[in-house]
Design a protein around this nucleic acid. Structure first.
Lengths: 191, 191
DNA sequence: TGGTTCATGTACCAAGTGGTACATGCGGGC
DNA sequence: GCCCGCATGTACCACTTGGTACATGAACCA
């Protein structure tokens, strides 16, 4: 189940490699050389280049889901602390790489899109509903916003490397959510 | 200055093509065929494949900056209405594609990263400072958050296509900002 | 023992790759 | 007229690409 099967072993190695230098732009031979096998083996075990890409995308997705499952009911600051940890940056770069490729229709990455939002929202919303007493609809809205904020700030973080600065921004967002908002505050022109 | 110079004409065509089907995964010949020229011409005018990629990335960046300049002092809802318009989706897909490639170090896209955050913050912050009476530091924090929220929600939008749903989420964020937050809520940190 | 299945290596293929050499047209200045 | 610089086309280069054919080994089961 772990790395005993050669396919699993190769997949793990490919994943590892994908996190250092990307994967969408690599040829089978490049990748094979990098992980110490032959392009013949990659084709044997994954059928085609696209099959390999698909398998990697799927694995990344699965890792994400595992992450989510583990993080339910954790508070926002700890969650950000977790995601902004530099050891996760390679994985997050890979995520954005695959995401970008999926958006332009690169085969083998398309199904990646379907699981980019909904599973996260579904995983986070119940905790919000429970701990903040929100009705389900509102909890899902709030969760969707949280996912977007986290992704947007991760993009910032990966581009700038400025963990402290971005963390400050995240803190500001958290304080918004903690203070709740007053729908009666009406406007028109900003307060 | 427009499309009189052949290089400009080719660049415009390449950009156009890049928005429909991406560009990072295309070969020179594919691209040339798609825009009705020869790969020879692309190499002549851009020096190399990487030169072309760079030029396209640069043009996208420039278009972004123009967008920003035009949007200063516009209110948040109109801004979202603008960015979420389906006619801009191809451009935004291209943005995320280039961003993803830049994050994994694809040559010709690297400098893209440096201008992903700061120019936007600098363009937006003064308006926030002016209209909401925030000090400069706070205005920049707020602007950085706004950029992240917008990008995160655009990612959601491009993946799901659910403009109405995502717009609701954005609305929730706007209401947070409009109601202001109460730092006295509990929290020790942050003034 | 022999047969079967999975894993791997070697060698190859046609097609496509980025890039270059070279010839050709076409315009305006002299 | 002539030349010169830009733009373009044709033909080619060595190399890489994804994929396949085929042989071989190792492990297991009969």
């Amino acid at each position: 189940m772990t790395a005993s099967q050669p396919r699993e072993r190769l997949l793990a190695a490919a994943l590892e490699q994908a996190m250092h230098g990307g994967i969408a732009g690599m040829s089978l031979r490049e990748l094979a050389r990098a992980i110490g096998t032959s392009h013949r083996m990659l084709l044997y075990h994954f059928g085609s280049r696209e099959g390999l890409l698909t398998a990697v995308a799927y694995a990344v997705e699965e890792a994400q889901r595992a992450e989510v499952a583990q993080l339910v009911a954790v508070d926002a600051r700890r969650l950000w602390q977790h995601f902004s940890d530099p050891v996760l940056w390679p994985a997050e770069r890979l995520f954005f790489e695959l995401y970008g490729q999926a958006l332009v229709g690169r085969p083998g990455t398309e199904e990646f899109l379907g699981n980019a939002i909904e599973p996260w929202v579904t995983a986070i919303a119940p905790a919000l509903s429970r701990e903040a007493g929100l009705d389900e609809r509102t909890a899902r809205l709030e969760a969707r916003l949280a996912v977007a904020v986290t992704r947007g700030l991760l993009l910032d973080l990966l581009a700038t490397g400025d963990r402290q600065g971005v963390t400050e921004v995240f803190e500001r967002y958290v304080q918004y959510t903690e203070s709740g908002y007053r729908p009666d505050a009406n406007q028109p022109g900003q307060p």
